[in-house]
Amino acid sequence: MNRTAIVYLVSLAAFLGPFTQTIYTPILPEVTKDFGTSSFLVNLTISIFTFFLALMQMVYGPLTDTKGRRNVLLFGVFLYITASLGCFFSNSIYVLLVFRALQAIGIAAGSVVAATVIGDLFEGKARGKAMGTFQMMVSLGPVAGPIVGGFLGGRFNFHSVFLVLVLAGLLIWVGNFIFLQETKPEKQLAKTFRLRDFIPILRHRTGSSIILLGFIQYYAMYNFLVFLPSILTERYGLSAEEKGIAYLAMSCMIVIGSFIGDAFKGIGKSAISFWQHHI
């Protein structure tokens, strides 16, 4: 199998993270009603997923160096499939919270392994192009999630959302099981996970600035994700399908912003190169 196809295959695993995070946000009021619980607990199913999705990426990084890229990805996606099936059969909000956490713990491997495999297979400009494909697939997650979730929630019920995630995860697991070969260099040194390794990043001005900007971005997006459905339901009386479409503007802007960022990054590199050669 060619390297380009591998990029798309592993990027699909990364796509599942943001896709799963946003897929049932349009139907949060329906989930609250179905479980007969509070909005706080239902919103917690989004925040707990986001928390573990971020946390486990720090854990999976060193694991890809010790256990291998392929093993880590297959394990993570398998755990994700099992947890999604648990979400489908959940009959209480507390059971759903547990399986949502397990979902995130599993699928967090997707983006880490995808980026690592791309780094193993490509160099120079080819690596930049492959990473662009990876970023595009990740950006499509929040675009497709609310639309698919709104459609399924309107036609069926919110449990059907998790059944779709089971099927999607299964297809991606099978594809990577068949086609993905281990890309870890034989002589690569294994690294252990240590929290103190992140201290220099936090102390560095650029590193801390990026983390702060990322926090602000995702904090704003999280508030948008969890509070908009109630507003659209209570104030405007929109159906589940209509609420899914209402997310389309924000989702499209995420994709457009990603492309603009890549374009300016390329312009910046070209400008630096020009000045280095002419001054």
Rank of each mutant, 00 (worst) to 15 (best):
M1A: 13
N2R: 07
I6R: 03
Y8V: 06
Y8T: 03
Y8K: 03
A13V: 09
A14Y: 05
G17I: 10
P18Q: 06
P18V: 15
P18F: 07
T25E: 05
T32F: 00
F35C: 06
G36E: 02
T37I: 01
T37M: 01
S38W: 04
S39H: 12
F40S: 14
L41Y: 05
T45C: 04
T50F: 13
F51C: 11
F52M: 12
T64R: 08
D65N: 12
G68I: 07
G68S: 09
R69S: 06
R70L: 09
L73R: 04
F75L: 14
G76Q: 08
L79Y: 11
S84W: 00
S90P: 01
N91K: 08
V98A: 07
R100D: 00
A104V: 09
I107C: 06
A109F: 09
S111P: 15
S111Q: 15
V113G: 07
A115Y: 10
V117Y: 00
G119F: 08
G119N: 14
D120Y: 10
F122W: 08
K125V: 14
A130R: 06
G132W: 02
M136A: 13
S139M: 10
L140P: 09
V143W: 02
I147M: 04
I147D: 04
L152M: 01
L152F: 06
G154F: 00
N157K: 00
N157R: 03
H159A: 02
F162M: 06
L165H: 05
L165T: 10
L167W: 05
A168C: 11
G169L: 07
L170M: 15
L170A: 15
L171W: 03
Q181S: 14
L189P: 01
T192H: 10
R196L: 12
S209H: 08
A220N: 02
F224M: 09
L228M: 15
P229D: 05
T233N: 07
R235Q: 14
A240S: 04
I245Q: 03
L248F: 10
M250R: 00
S251M: 04
M253A: 13
V255C: 00
I256C: 06
S258M: 15
F259I: 15
F259R: 14
I260M: 14
D262F: 10
D262K: 11
A263F: 15
I267V: 15
I267Q: 12
K269P: 01
S270W: 12
S270N: 14
I272A: 11
S273L: 13
F274L: 13
I279Q: 10
